[in-house]
Design a protein around this nucleic acid. Structure first.
Lengths: 212, 212
DNA sequence: AAAAGATTGTTATATAATTAACATAGTTGT
DNA sequence: ACAACTATGTTAATTATATAACAATCTTTT
């Protein structure tokens, strides 16, 4: 079905963007789109659109274009948004709370089922409809529930300890907001890092060098 | 001083990472480092380290290596972290509050001086030592204070309106957490996007395709 | 049903990024 | 001061990514 002889990360990182734009087109009741038009909307080349999509299969039809809904659904499937992944949040500080309250996980087919926290002061806090649990309950919880991935919203210094536990419990997929380098300790994990300060420093670089 | 005939974004996006690792080495009182050792720590090739650094100048010494402190300071300067940039926050919802409270802006030499919000319910809220101001005060504030950049933590639908105002006020550098595509409206701006949901979808892709 | 037009899928080309190689220059020890 | 060593800066080779070109194929119109 898919020509999945190792697709490059550059292509994969563009998939969410295709997904977003196709969702918008669908909302506007557009039912077909050509690579040229989609490229124009997304500000990329038509060649790139066609090459990217063809990594995964022939989703279009010559002489016609792509069916918006079909293509969107295919990309959704590729992204694993139909898998009903179950997630837990580690760290209910400012960042953890914001991530949990700000993100529309359900829209991505992800279910956030529990939040864990070290600081006794925060245990019992409400995040959406979840109450924050103690980190000491982590093992019990994970042994009695499906947990596909953990969102790590704790300071760098605490990560090694928690990762050791999660890894032993068989949880090896992480959305990591800390600067702790997970893969260099556990290589058989899947990690997606969000380094907010790196992003801000990049903006500073642009301001310092590309401006005026 | 710098060989700045257009440095590629790939290189620029690695600078914050060098900065982080060099800061750590400095804290451990390491005073010299070779490209080979630094590469090993950072899990990249020594070639890349040398090429990256040489985009900006000869920071090392043959036969010796790089002075940790000197190199760190040079990268800090390149990143514009000595410029005392003044920033404002637009949007004091969950995300805006978390960004403001979680980030250590001062460590990056950035001063967050004000927060603005649309929702009357949130006006007056405290974020660190700042009280949230009404968006109607934005123009007055910007006309009487230096504002180098704005952090946009508002929903996509509100961005166009606020960007129009900020652009007119001469504020053209944005740290953008929304999905609104700023550069396609105003091309003479500097934008750094943080697309949290794209990042999470990328993790889902990995879980769906690279795992098991 | 055939011809004209459109747009994909795919192959070829060009550009960019990474890695390797090495000559040059500085360091350290005797 | 000299020899042996180390590690940079830089050029060359390789690999990866993006763009362009075009033949194959479907659609639409007459």
């Amino acid at each position: 079905m898919a020509k999945s002889d190792s697709i490059s990360m550059s292509v994969i990182r563009r998939l969410p963007r295709y997904y977003r734009f196709l969702s918008e087109l669908e909302e506007k009741n557009v039912d077909k789109i050509s690579s040229t038009k989609l490229a124009k909307i997304m500000n990329v080349t038509a060649s790139q659109v066609r090459q990217d999509l063809n990594c995964f299969g022939g989703f279009g039809q010559q002489g016609y274009g792509y069916s918006v809904t079909y293509l969107k659904e295919e990309i959704k499937r590729l992204l694993g948004l139909n898998n009903n992944y179950q997630a837990i949040l580690i760290g209910a500080g400012n960042l953890g709370k914001a991530v949990a309250m700000h993100m529309n996980f359900e829209k991505l087919g992800i279910h956030l089922t529990a939040c864990f926290e070290n600081d006794p002061q925060k245990i019992g806090d409400k995040i959406n409809d979840l109450s924050v649990l103690s980190e000491s309950d982590l093992e019990m919880y994970c042994n009695s529930h499906t947990v596909d991935t953990a969102f790590l919203c704790i300071p760098r210094t605490g990560v090694e300890n928690i990762i050791d536990k999660l890894y032993l419990l068989g949880i090896k997929n992480y959305w990591n907001f800390s600067h702790y380098d997970i893969t260099s300790k556990y290589s058989d994990t899947l990690v997606e890092n969000v380094h907010l300060s790196d992003s801000l420093m990049t903006l500073c670089y642009k301001m310092n060098n590309l401006n005026s």
